[in-house]
């Protein structure tokens, strides 16, 4: 189903798993629309663990400049928020889905260029099928996605829809094959909530 996901060391020909996997969500957008009637909700988030070291605040300064530049060039707005778990979120907003994905990619790439890739946790892309919000979570450890469909109100999730997304979207995006790793990420501070 997803060769890149099965072999993170990339011993299979060509395609070692990397940040480039992020862009598969752009292709999948059309398929999500036709199969699940789901459209992007113009928001995406990147979650990382802040560090107390001085070097890190210098890095965050560089990050802010990058995000500001993105805001001016592509009108991709950004907000930075802390969550109760001690993680920090960069929430991006843009009507153009490709711009959102590119912004997430560039931000994550900046982390890796500064040898801070290990601080990255996940990125989340928000969709809606009208009735339900669907999130695609990208895990920076394995460089693949998994579906997450939270049920509003209580910390529960729609497992059956998630499994359907897994079955039907596996051809379009690299999906984490180990279901045990599909950990929920509740209450991402998106604006539309």
């Amino acid at each position: 189903m997803s060769q890149t996901a099965d072999d993170p060391n990339g011993s299979n020909t060509g395609n070692p798993a990397d940040l480039g996997n992020l862009f598969s969500i752009v292709v999948a957008e059309t398929e999500l629309r036709t199969k699940f009637n789901a459209v992007p909700l113009q928001e995406a988030g990147l979650c990382f663990k802040p560090s107390n070291q001085n070097a890190f605040s210098a890095f965050e300064h560089i990050l802010a400049q990058l995000l500001l530049a993105g805001e001016q060039v592509t009108r991709t707005q950004y907000r930075i928020l802390d969550d109760p778990y001690g993680f920090r979120w960069i929430i991006l907003k843009s009507p153009a889905f490709e711009d959102l994905v590119t912004a997430i990619y560039l931000t994550a790439e900046t982390f890796e260029e500064h040898a801070l890739g290990s601080q990255l946790l996940v990125a989340s892309f928000l969709f809606s099928s009208g009735k339900q919000e669907i999130e695609w979570i990208f895990n920076f450890k394995n460089y693949n996605f998994y579906p997450f469909v939270p049920i509003p109100g209580n910390n529960e999730r729609n497992n059956s829809l998630e499994l359907r997304l897994f079955r039907e979207m596996g051809g379009a995006i690299p999906i984490e094959p180990q279901l045990e790793n599909w950990h929920p990420i509740f209450d991402i501070p998106f604006e539309g909530r």
């Binding site: 979650c47 969550d83 946790l121 910390n155 279901l179």
Partner: peptide
């Protein structure tokens, strides 16, 4: 079906809690 089927493999614990 819910607890011994494939669904049982999907965790319900938040990733951030696990990481901490």
């Amino acid at each position: 079906q819910k607890i011994s089927g494939v669904i049982a493999r999907i965790p319900s614990q938040d990733l951030r809690k696990l990481e901490t």
